[in-house]
């Protein structure tokens, strides 16, 4: 195990610790509300796990700065004829540059000044531009938005059940409830 690995993975390990704490609360605690709290912690930690995956070092949030977006839109309208060439440029430009993204960092010169008159040049400029900004992967975020909502739905349902159980049994401790049930069936 090298130091490199430890630095590369410690994030995950902490998240795993969090998940396991949540999991422990769920299976060890007999209080129904506490169980639900544990479930919450567990699920939140899983969300963190996903988000951790999407992160790229030196990247930014997957929101395209307005000026680039605007430019893109403008460009899109202007050069419908060349749009194919444009998107090809995009594709080829991005992948190799990602490797060097960390080294380049913020040193890359903003190529706005190089904005040329010709449409062809615009295309290549666009490609350069997108190498400069690295985005973290948006997909985990998308998935986790769904997961969070699913989580809250589950929590709400669980809490409703707890309210019902507490009304029926007068307690929310699982041990006591089981005791009451046992007493019930013994007569």
């Amino acid at each position: 195990m090298t130091l490199d690995e430890i630095f590369g993975l410690y994030n995950y390990w902490v998240v795993i610790c969090l998940m396991m704490t949540g999991f422990y609360i769920v299976i060890a605690r007999k209080n129904l509300i506490k169980t639900v709290i544990g479930l919450n912690v567990f699920q939140t930690s899983v969300v963190l796990l996903y988000i951790t995956m999407g992160k790229v070092t030196g990247g930014t949030a997957p929101i395209i700065p307005p000026e680039i977006a605007a430019q893109h839109g403008e460009h899109h309208e202007h050069s419908t004829a060349h749009s194919t060439a444009h998107s090809t440029a995009h594709m080829t430009a991005d992948a190799p540059h990602l490797d060097h993204a960390t080294e380049h960092g913020h040193e890359a010169v903003t190529p706005l000044t190089q904005h040329a008159d010709h449409v062809h040049q615009t295309a290549s400029a666009m490609a350069d531009h997108s190498t400069e900004l690295i985005y973290s992967n948006p997909l985990p975020s998308v998935l986790m938005l769904t997961a969070i909502v699913v989580g809250i739905a589950t929590t709400a349902l669980a809490l409703a059940l707890i309210v019902r159980i507490s009304e029926d049994y007068g307690t929310i401790e699982e041990d006591e409830i089981l005791l009451i049930d046992q007493r019930d069936s013994s007569h």
Partner: peptide, 23 residues
């Protein structure tokens, strides 16, 4: 590793969601 730009998550989908969604 954390933040690795070469991980499958970042590279598998080509062109990435960023560009694809732009067009």
């Amino acid at each position: 590793h954390f933040g690795d730009p070469n991980s499958p998550v970042q590279t598998r989908i080509e062109p990435s969601f960023m560009e694809k969604s732009q067009s």
